[in-house]
Design a protein around this nucleic acid. Sequence first.
DNA 1: ATTAATCATGCAAATGAGTTTCAATAGTGA
DNA 2: TCACTATTGAAACTCATTTGCATGATTAAT
Lengths: 151, 151
Amino acid sequence: MTETDRRIAVFESQLKGAGLRMTQQRRLILRVLAEADDHPDAKGIFTRAFAHDPTLSLSTVYRTMKVLESQGAIERHAFEDGISRYEHADQEHHDHLIDVDSGEVIEFSSDAIEELQRRIAAELGYELVRHRLELYGRKKQPARRGGRKAS
Amino acid sequence: MTETDRRIAVFESQLKGAGLRMTQQRRLILRVLAEADDHPDAKGIFTRAFAHDPTLSLSTVYRTMKVLESQGAIERHAFEDGISRYEHADQEHHDHLIDVDSGEVIEFSSDAIEELQRRIAAELGYELVRHRLELYGRKKQPARRGGRKAS
DNA sequence: ATTAATCATGCAAATGAGTTTCAATAGTGA
DNA sequence: TCACTATTGAAACTCATTTGCATGATTAAT
Ligand SMILES: [Mn+2]
Ligand SMILES: [Mn+2]
Ligand SMILES: [Zn+2]
Ligand SMILES: [Zn+2]
């Protein structure tokens, strides 16, 4: 909870610096995001926040996500369904593997692949600004005695 | 042109096998895609095809893209703006680098990065089914004599 | 604390890509 | 050529996201 409060304080000073205001709604949404350990979409964030403040509107969630993103407080991802999903940005960079059967999102990071991407861009004459890397995979069965399973 | 016709013939037999029909519209859209060397969206395909058949409708383009995709005849990509873009699928796998200034899409392929993705998935206990890799970069200036440029 | 300035909010309406409904049309195989 | 049914064009619809507008809340200065 203290960690969450620290994040909110940091964000508040960022806002001030941009001539923007810290509102109850923004505080609430920020708290929801800080406590989330998944990648909720706007509706999901709205649902969680709405439980604490039934006057909140979905428009405000969308607007807040834009502010948070422009301040670098969150990251937005759009996986295959195209819907924007969000997560707080105070963690180090990582990419995502999506379980194609369950939809579960697994985070991973690999210095090797980060470096390789930079090198590929460089070979094409570009400086890498950002990237999007999503792996879609299916859970491997642990190896079985007796070869491939029937059916 | 012969190459395009071959593609169309192949697709027609795929359709037949699925109990589907080869129509003028599908033939036309397929031709547009075969002749494209970029990554047009539905509206772009519609515009090009409409020039040859002013009775064509945008709905048909969308419907046709679904059929083509389900038959594996095209690939769909959604870059940062979320709009679906298409390209014919009879080329080997590649990924894309997008010039953040011009929007230009550059194709590349790297066995190293393909292999690395497979390995990362495997380490997480997954078998890689597919992936999405997009690099966003800015054109590098060729090295200049005299150090960094003014301004 | 009170106020003035203006930023932010809630609601409803609008937007835009993509999908679907339906009556009419056009491939298909016989 | 015929009967069957997949496909089409047009319009209506879906759904995530954005926007206009009147009202309410936050801020820094009294
Ligand atoms: Mn994440
Ligand atoms: Mn391509
Ligand atoms: Zn990464
Ligand atoms: Zn690839």
